Amino acid sequence: MALPPRGRFNPRFNRQPEPEHRINDRIRVPQVRLVGDNVTVGVYPTDEARRIAQQQELDLVEISPNADPPVCKIIDYKKFLYEKKRKEKEMKANAKQSEVKEIRFTPGTDDHDFDFKAKHAETFLKEGNKVKAYVQFKGRAIMFQDRGQLLLLKFAERLADVGMLESMPKMEGKRMLAMFAPKSQKKKA
């Protein structure tokens, strides 16, 4: 039994990917709603819309296939795809992913360290990130859970201007943690 040829000569691998939109001869509906530059907007028979696109040396591209009748636009398809990719890339760049920043305390954290960590948490919250503050208990320090809770509540009070406490401090294993979310930034008129 002969095996099919491997690599680039195998017809399964030479298939062109289907275009994202139906263009020109791939549009098989009887009527389309035509939009675009230098075109009178309206419903046309598909053949006439295709002829108008050919006269302008552009492509007939199906923009909204689910509409009744489907909406088609007369444009340069490659330029259309380029613009679409560029817009998607721009939107992706503008969409900032918020991160969760961690700040660690011990039950015996002194005031200077507390202030230093609180300033860092304020900058994180102003940047739009969430802050996960936790008190790490080691050895016998687990007996001082009340100190840890007081420390986290004091931390929440300090961050009240820029962030809000999402959940009250709770124990997870040998850690007591609290989550802080940034307050929504309202623009002043």
Rank of each mutant, 00 (worst) to 15 (best):
Q31R: 06
K85D: 02
A181F: 00
A160N: 08
R12P: 03
N38P: 00
G148A: 11
I75V: 15
C72F: 01
I27E: 03
T106Y: 14
G163Y: 02
P45E: 12
E62K: 04
K188S: 05
N14P: 00
A118H: 04
P19A: 09
P30A: 11
P107I: 15
M176V: 08
F180Y: 08
F80R: 04
K85F: 01
G128D: 03
G139Q: 01
R104I: 14
K138G: 00
L125W: 10
D113V: 12
M1T: 08
R15Y: 04
D111A: 14
G7R: 10
A93K: 14
L81F: 01
L159A: 07
D37S: 13
P30F: 09
R28I: 08
F116D: 06
P17E: 12
R26V: 00
A67L: 12
I23N: 02
E48K: 11
A93C: 04
K119D: 10
E90N: 08
R147N: 14
Q136P: 01
G128Q: 07
R15W: 00
L152N: 05
R86V: 06
G173C: 12
L81W: 01
Q149T: 15
V41L: 09
Q55A: 12
D110M: 00
R15A: 13
E18W: 03
Y77L: 04
F114C: 12
G42K: 02
A189T: 06
F124E: 02
K96T: 13
E122N: 03
F114M: 07
R147L: 14
E18F: 10
E48L: 15
P17A: 14
V32R: 00
E62I: 02
E48H: 10
L34F: 00
E48N: 02
K117R: 15
R147E: 13
L150Q: 14
P4I: 08
Q56I: 02
Q97T: 10
K186W: 04
P65S: 09
H112S: 10
D111G: 07
Y134E: 14
N14L: 12
Q56D: 02
A95C: 00
T109R: 11
K130T: 06
K78C: 02
H21K: 05
P69R: 05
Y77W: 06
L165W: 03
T40S: 07
P11A: 13
V135S: 10
K130I: 03
R104L: 15
K84C: 01
A2R: 08
P107N: 03
F144T: 09
F137I: 07
P19D: 06
Q149E: 12
P70I: 03
I52F: 04
Q54A: 11
R28H: 05
D110N: 11
K188M: 01
